[in-house]
Amino acid sequence: MAIMVTGGAGYIGSHTVAELLARGEEVVVVDNLYQGHKAAVLGGKLYVGDLRDGEFMDTVFRENEIDAIIHFAANSLVGESMTNPAKYYHNNVYGTLCLLEKMNQYGVKRIVFSSTAATYGEPENVPILESDRTLPTNAYGETKLAMEKMMRWFDTAHGIKYVSLRYFNAAGAHESGKIGEDHLPETHLVPLILQVPLGQRAHISVFGDDYPTEDGTCIRDYIHVSDLADAHVLAVEKLRHGGDSDIFNLGNGTGYSVKQVIDAARKVTGHAIPAVMEPRRAGDPAVLVASSERARVELGWKPSRTSLEQIIESAWAWHKHNPKGYNDRT
Results as ranks from 00 to 15, higher is better:
Asp263Ala: 15
Gly79Lys: 11
Ala170Tyr: 06
Asp182His: 12
Met277Ser: 05
Val27Ala: 03
Gln35His: 08
Met147Leu: 04
His203Phe: 15
Leu42Phe: 00
Val48Cys: 14
Ile70Gly: 03
Pro191Ile: 08
Gly253Trp: 11
Gly7Phe: 00
Arg23Asn: 13
Ser291Cys: 13
Asp215Gln: 10
Glu63Asp: 15
Asn322Trp: 10
Arg166Thr: 08
Ile273Phe: 05
Pro285Cys: 02
Pro191Glu: 07
Val225His: 01
Val225Ala: 02
Arg240Leu: 08
Arg201Gly: 09
Leu46Ile: 12
Pro191Leu: 11
Gly107Ser: 11
Glu80Ser: 12
Gln310Cys: 02
Tyr94Asp: 07
His271Gln: 11
Ala265Asp: 06
Glu63Val: 01
Met82Lys: 04
Ser131Glu: 15
Pro212Lys: 06
Met1Tyr: 10
His321Pro: 02
Ser76Ile: 09
Arg23Phe: 06
Ser114Pro: 05
Ala2Phe: 11
Asn91Arg: 02
Glu278Leu: 07
Ala170Val: 05
Leu239Glu: 00
Lys38Trp: 01
His37Pro: 04
Leu228Pro: 05
Tyr167Ser: 05
Val297Gln: 08
Lys324Thr: 15
Val48Phe: 14
Phe56Ser: 13
Ser76Val: 14
Pro303Gly: 14
Lys259Glu: 08
Arg133His: 10
Thr83Leu: 13
Thr254Gln: 14
Met103Glu: 06
Val196His: 01
Val268Pro: 04
Arg305Glu: 03
Thr143Leu: 12
Met1Trp: 03
Leu192Gln: 07
Asn84Asp: 11
Arg305Tyr: 03
Val27Phe: 04
Leu198Asn: 04
Ile70Asp: 00
Leu239Tyr: 03
Asn92Lys: 03
Thr187His: 12
Asp215Ile: 10
Ser14Asn: 07
Glu122Gln: 13
Ile311Trp: 04
Ile311Pro: 05
Cys218Pro: 02
Asp227Phe: 00
Ile3Lys: 01
Val28Ile: 15
Glu80Met: 13
Ala290Glu: 15
Arg166Ser: 07
Gly172Glu: 06
Arg240Pro: 01
Ala235Tyr: 05
Arg294Lys: 13
Val236Gly: 00
Lys102Ser: 09
Thr119His: 02
Glu65Lys: 08
His71Thr: 03
Glu25Lys: 12
Glu63Trp: 02
Val17Met: 02
Leu21His: 08
Gln35Val: 10
Ala2Lys: 12
Ala275Tyr: 04
Ala18Arg: 00
Gly8Lys: 00
Ala9Tyr: 06
Gly242Asp: 02
Met277Ala: 00
Leu234Asp: 02
Thr134Tyr: 07
Phe168His: 14
Ala73Ser: 14
Lys87Leu: 15
Glu148Tyr: 03
Met150Ser: 04
Gly177Gln: 09
Glu148Trp: 01
Ile311Phe: 09
Glu63Pro: 05
Glu65Leu: 01
